[in-house]
Amino acid sequence: MVRPRVQSPRGDSQTSQQSFVISTQDLGKTYGDVAALSSLNLRVPENSIFAFLGPNGAGKTTTIKLLVGLTRPTSGSGTVLGYDIVRNSNEVRRGVGYLAQHPKFYKEMTARETMRFAARFYFKGPRDKIEERIEHLLSIVELDEKSDRPIEGFSGGEMQRLGIAQAQINYPELLILDEPAAGLDPEGREDVLKIMESLRSESTIFYSTHILDDVQRVSDTVAILNKGHMIAQAPISQLLAGSEGVAYALTLEGNTQKAYARLSEEPWVTGITEKKVKDKTQWVVTVSDDSMAKKKILRTVMADDTVDVLDFGLKQYELEEIFMKMVEDSNNVTQ
């Protein structure tokens, strides 16, 4: 099957040769007076593990349901694998694998029967090849031992793993997973993340989550959604580099007042954020001139004998900090 490609639009920060497996233009969904999703412009690059991040109720599941045709947009448009999500929803569903947030299968079926049922939507035969594929996927998700048991007795983690296996049955170019690790114990979460990493070579993975640790571990691109609005979309390395330019982190002991005043006067310092932790003081110093900062920050602070510098280095942002700040800023704007 040759599918239409969606190229990066002119002026996009991504390279012009990059293909997108998901592309939306002002996609929106309202339920009555409530806007679940507003003007979403999403670009998911091919061959990425793309995390769709947001607090509960942000609109992540709504977006995913729009992409797989389970619900219809009230505004805007979108393509998945180059196919229009409304007009060519059948083609979209042929090319993707989907795992719902709380996957529900027919409880009277076994795991193997569930896989066979899913496979028959795509393939008529040969039977041995289909069985081989089922066996392979069940072993990847470590359900081969339980493949002939009715799924009624499966745990949440087993159900989730079966969900990923059935979503992969048709060799999808794009795997869409809605909160694949939510509600699982640490071991179950670890299993799901490992499976996702192992599938990276086969499919682009677009998954929603609110578990930040998982995002930082397996994803390479992130979009952050809050209250139906997208507030950021970038490669994770770019996001982690911070949005406020270069910053340095210092941990100090003693009286920091004079050092604070002296450093604040430097023209290349754009801001100092101070936090007290027990008897220590932590600073994040944002700067406009990195070369000056490298040379002078430490000297300026250490010129004051009443201050001891316990730690100094380039500020490494955690995704959680970025996420919390962006969501907070977004909430302040909408209030």
């Binding site: 989907y98 996957p103 529900k104 027919y106 899913a118």
Partner: peptide, 14 residues
């Protein structure tokens, strides 16, 4: 109600 219909309809099914 259970979600099995949504699962089936996420496949190539009219």
């Amino acid at each position: 109600d259970s979600g099995s219909a949504a699962w089936v309809l996420s496949k190539p099914v009219s």
